[in-house]
Lab assay of single mutants.
Amino acid sequence: RSRTAFTAQQLEALEKTFQKTHYPDVVMRERLAMCTNLPEARVQVWFKNRRAKFRK
Results as ranks from 00 to 15, higher is better:
K48V: 13
M28W: 04
K20L: 13
A5C: 13
A5F: 12
Q10V: 03
A52F: 07
R3T: 15
K53Q: 11
R42L: 14
F18V: 00
N49K: 15
M34R: 12
A8T: 14
R51E: 01
V43A: 07
A52E: 15
E30N: 05
A8K: 07
K48F: 08
P39Y: 05
K16G: 13
R51P: 09
H22T: 07
R50Y: 02
H22E: 05
Q10H: 04
Y23T: 03
E15C: 04
F18A: 01
R29P: 06
P39L: 03
F6H: 05
T21I: 03
R1N: 15
F18I: 02
K53A: 13
P39M: 00
R42A: 15
Q19C: 05
A8C: 03
A5Y: 09
R31S: 11
R51A: 01
F6S: 06
D25L: 03
A8W: 05
R3S: 14
E15Q: 02
D25M: 00
A5W: 12
W46Q: 08
T17I: 10
K20W: 10
A33L: 02
A5H: 07
A33G: 14
D25S: 05
V43C: 00
H22F: 01
L14S: 03
V27K: 05
P24T: 01
K48P: 04
R42V: 14
F54M: 12
V45G: 08
Q9V: 09
E12G: 04
L32S: 03
N37H: 09
T4P: 13
K20P: 00
S2F: 12
T7S: 12
T7V: 01
F47D: 03
R29M: 15
K20T: 09
K20F: 12
T7G: 03
Q9E: 11
E30D: 10
F54Y: 12
S2M: 06
T36F: 14
R50N: 08
M28A: 10
R3K: 15
N49V: 06
L11Q: 10
F6I: 08
A33W: 04
V27R: 07
T21W: 03
T7L: 00
A41T: 11
N37L: 04
C35G: 07
F6P: 10
R1A: 11
L11Y: 05
R50G: 08
A52C: 04
P24M: 02
M28T: 12
T4C: 13
P24R: 04
F18Q: 02
T36Y: 13
Y23I: 00
S2D: 15
